[in-house]
């Protein structure tokens, strides 16, 4: 059982990292959203497996919340936003796919090294979980940095948050309250960002974040 528990958890967490890589090179918004939904599914599976392994029932609730919001509600909402804005066109990458993937690989390696150093003595399961979670967080940040489109920035932010939930689920004894609040804060962020996107597109007829900069006060 010990070996199986570790292997499955490893597989699911690794799958999450894989999904993050998939997100990095999606060039179309719909594909991006679908990949994001898939990542959320893998996340909820991973959390559910953790619940089973740790015997922590409240993690099932977390898994359900993650599935319901991240795999269903948020992708559908973003789909609608995209349709309403009429921007179902290509995503433009600022940095090419190749360098982005290489940077992503370096980040995963970095998070593995960091976790080996600071949590070397911890339980292997928890450590690997944390290493993958940190990778997902860093990849999400990377996505926010390299994308110009505001919708894909939002997706990057959400996938970053997936990494946080993975870390929370991997650490034993994290109370449910924290996860619920995190989930709802993401939902609130979605609402705010959605409103924000509509406003941006109304004003500037584009949701390219670079467009915003031309309206800023110039430095001396």
């Amino acid at each position: 059982m010990r070996g199986l528990a570790f292997d499955v958890a490893h597989l699911l967490a690794g799958g999450l990292v894989l999904m993050s890589f998939l997100l990095l090179y999606q060039t179309r918004l719909y594909a991006l959203l679908n990949t994001f939904a898939l990542q959320a599914v893998v996340l909820s599976l991973s959390v559910a497996w953790q619940a089973y392994v740790q015997g922590a029932d409240h993690l099932y609730v977390t898994a359900v919340i993650a599935f319901a919001f991240k795999a269903i509600v948020i992708p559908i909402a973003l789909h609608r936003i995209i349709i309403e804005l009429g921007i179902d066109r290509d995503v433009e990458n600022v940095v090419g796919v190749g360098p982005t993937m290489l940077a992503g690989l370096a980040l995963v390696a970095l998070s593995e090294v960091v976790m080996l150093r600071i949590a070397g003595g911890a339980d292997v399961l928890a450590r690997e979980d944390l290493a993958f979670a940190l990778s997902v967080v860093l990849l999400g940040l990377l996505m926010m940095v390299v994308r110009r489109n505001a919708v894909s920035m939002v997706v990057g932010f959400m996938s970053l948050e997936n990494g946080l939930i993975l870390a929370g689920a991997g650490a034993k004894g994290m109370p449910l309250v924290v996860e619920v609040s995190v989930a709802f804060s993401v939902l609130v962020a979605l609402v705010v960002i959605g409103v924000f996107l509509f406003r941006i597109s109304e004003r500037f007829e584009s949701i390219d974040a670079e467009a915003l900069d031309s309206f800023r006060e110039r430095g001396r």
């Binding site: 970095l110 940040l141 940095v145 900069d213 006060e217 430095g219």
Partner: peptide, 19 residues
């Protein structure tokens, strides 16, 4: 007077450097 993406890059870079 950086752009939004440059700010995020600064934060990201700082995090990576610290790690």
């Amino acid at each position: 007077f950086l752009t939004i993406r440059q700010y995020m890059s600064v934060v990201f870079g700082a995090l990576v450097v610290l790690l």
